[in-house]
């Protein structure tokens, strides 16, 4: 018995070390760095709330402009892409789960496969599709739109690519949840004279509310970290109208020239707080309304 008193450290010890070094310390240090002047290499100097004051209130500062522009663009991305990334896979999953539809797994695979393609490979293909001279879109529709350099088209290219590559996981979750809904519920709804839309709203949606809450919260939290699609499709343009906050944070901390990691950390903490607050609010509202 004495021997096993310590042997649990053999099982959980290695991971605890990894956790402390790669999650706990960097998280604490990230918050600490936001109150400092730091260039990533030398030791940081404490400046209190200066970074936050500059970002939030100093209208002449480029950091102020970058933060609010980046936050605005990130919120636009989240606000448009999350509803699309929930509604579209939900409709597709419902169609696949239609009683008489065959080849269910085939349809599912086709929709899921783009999710396995890395953002950079997908962006190369989509950039060509939307290329104004060589691209499929303009050739096909006989247009001459400069997609990635005019709004609202620049946003549209980002959303199209995001939906294309990002709905597979949610669709599989919805499909499995819908197929688990008891047939009795549908039958009794039919006896009450409910049509397909009515059945979807009053039977399907309430029955899959937990997977719905899960996917909404996870998709939202993930969308706040958006970085690759605007970087590769539009490079933040036109006129920084698609430059998201992660792009500014990366440029400040790791861009060419002197690293401004303290300021970048303050922006990261603010973004992190927004993510936490919105996730918690979503969970609270959705859980209460469906209870």
């Amino acid at each position: 018995m004495d021997k096993s008193k310590f042997s649990h450290w053999f099982f959980i010890g290695p991971h605890i070390i990894l956790f402390v070094v790669f999650i706990l310390i960097p998280s604490i240090y990230g918050v600490y760095a936001s109150f400092t002047n730091w260039n990533l290499m030398t030791s940081p100097t404490w400046v209190g709330l200066d970074n936050y004051r500059t970002i939030l209130t100093n209208q002449d500062s480029s950091f102020h402009h970058e933060f609010f522009n980046g936050m605005k663009n990130t919120l636009i991305f989240v606000g448009v892409s999350v509803p699309l990334m929930v509604a579209i896979p939900l409709v597709i999953a419902s169609a696949i789960e239609h009683k008489k539809v065959k080849f269910k797994n085939f349809f599912q695979s086709i929709i899921y496969i783009p999710g396995l393609i890395s953002i950079s490979a997908a962006a190369l293909i989509w950039s060509l599709i939307f290329n104004s001279q060589l691209g499929m879109m303009n050739n096909f529709f006989g247009a001459d739109t400069v997609w990635t350099a005019t709004q609202p088209y620049a946003w549209m290219t980002i959303f199209i690519m995001t939906v294309w590559g990002g709905i597979g996981g949610n669709m599989i979750i919805y499909r499995a949840s819908i197929s688990n809904v008891s047939q009795d519920l549908y039958e009794s709804a039919e006896i009450d004279g409910a049509g397909p839309i009515r059945k979807f709203i009053s039977v399907t949606l309430p029955s899959i509310r937990f997977p719905l809450i899960y996917t909404v919260v996870m998709t939202t939290a993930g969308s706040f970290n958006v970085f690759g699609q605007p970087l590769m499709m539009t490079n933040g343009g036109p006129r920084e109208s698609t430059t998201v906050l992660m792009m500014y944070i990366r440029d400040l901390a790791f861009g060419s020239g002197q690293s401004i990691a303290g300021m970048a950390s303050a922006m990261a903490v603010l973004l992190g707080m927004v993510i936490l607050i919105i996730s918690a609010a979503q969970y609270y509202v959705m859980n209460r309304n469906s209870a």
Partner: peptide, 27 residues
């Protein structure tokens, strides 16, 4: 304290990882 430890670590891991990415680079 096994379960307390587990759920503490799990809770900490929900902390948005955008905050730890810059120090992680330094480490």
């Amino acid at each position: 304290g096994r379960d307390v430890l587990f759920f503490t670590l799990l809770g900490i891991s929900f902390f948005p990882n955008v905050v730890n990415i810059i120090p992680l680079y330094r480490i």
